Simulated scan of single mutants.
Amino acid sequence: MRVMLITNPFATFTTAEGRDALANTLDSRFAVDVEHTTHRGHAGELGTRAVNEGYDAVVVHGGDGSVNEVANGMLGAPDSPAPDPATLPALGVVPGGSANVFARALGISRDPLTATAQLMELLDAGARRSISLGHALNRWFLFTAGMGTDAIVIRRMEELRHAGRRATAGLYLRVTLGAFFRPQVTPPTFTVEVPDRGPVDGVRFGFVSNTGPWTYLGSRPIRTNPRTDFDTGLGVFAATSMSVPRNLRLGSKLLRGADPTASHVYRDDDVEWVRFHSDEPADFQMDGDYLGRFTDIEFGNRRGVLDVVAPPEAG
């Protein structure tokens, strides 16, 4: 089996020793070519090359942003004909970022050593699981995209990382709370549309999910759409209020794993498309990557578009 191992040396929780140990472990059983990313977009270029050169699997050791790039490189743009997943390398992940939402949602351990052992067993067995992906702005997303407050949080986290701060669950929580208690930027309102219902106006922040965990706080999954997973359509979560008391109650439900219902929240699951419209440009993020400000975004979903190296169902 030919495996391309793509590592991101700039990922939050990777080390040179860990990357070497991973490469040596995989190389003990498979024919492994190691590639280190050197610039933004490089992981996508490597994903495309892995397809063109006929690799059996691609293993990414990095964060969600690196995995997103590789998946986009492997699949090409969503507005082009989708390749047959069986003709593509299977995509595996050894977590190396701060959240690793995609890998953990697939049932892969967040511990790199345990994840490596999992992947080797799955690769040996030829295990491939076909999953759906979302798309927007002619780009695939693996687990979530959002407009409004959560995108402002992502933008602020990227600013802090560029200033030398380490991305931790504690820092993420403090920045999130600050966006509600001490907002430096007030997001504009926008409208959310889904099939077969009227528009939801006055939305202050909204998420479109491709799977259940929206993110993780340490070991705790935060599920905005518990009935959305990799085998369904998209999940939608839209809040029409920035009220601190109302969102503290909502946040408490999310942290407890309770059904996140609230009078100011609209939710839907297994929808085929979603539209966000704002009269003013609003912040937007995809898979934890800040993409800028937009006024109109349409989201779609494609079933069974990517094969991953993962257990049949998340553990």
Rank of each mutant, 00 (worst) to 15 (best):
V34W: 02
D27R: 15
T15D: 11
G18S: 06
T48W: 00
N52C: 01
T37E: 09
A43R: 03
A11W: 05
E53H: 04
T37D: 11
R40F: 11
S28M: 08
A31C: 12
F30E: 03
E35R: 10
H61Y: 08
V58C: 04
N24M: 10
H39E: 04
L26F: 09
H61G: 07
G47C: 08
N24W: 02
G63Q: 07
G41I: 03
T15E: 12
D56K: 12
A21E: 08
L22G: 04
G47L: 05
E45A: 09
E45C: 05
A43I: 02
A50M: 09
E17S: 13
R29L: 15
T12K: 09
F30S: 04
F10H: 13
T37F: 08
N24Q: 15
E17R: 09
R49E: 08
A31M: 10
R19W: 00
V32R: 04
R40V: 14
A23V: 14
T12G: 15
H36G: 05
F13S: 12
G54Y: 00
T14A: 06
R29V: 15
A31Q: 13
T38N: 07
G62T: 00
N52M: 06
D33K: 02
L46T: 03
E53P: 08
H39R: 12
F10E: 10
N52F: 00
V32S: 09
G18M: 07
V32T: 01
A57F: 11
T38C: 13
E45Y: 01
H42R: 01
N24V: 08
D33A: 13
T25F: 13
D20I: 05
T12V: 11
Y55C: 08
A16Q: 10
A11E: 06
H61C: 15
R19E: 15
L46P: 10
V32P: 13
V51G: 08
D56C: 09
E45D: 08
N52S: 12
R40T: 11
E45G: 06
T14G: 07
V34I: 12
L46D: 06
D56M: 08
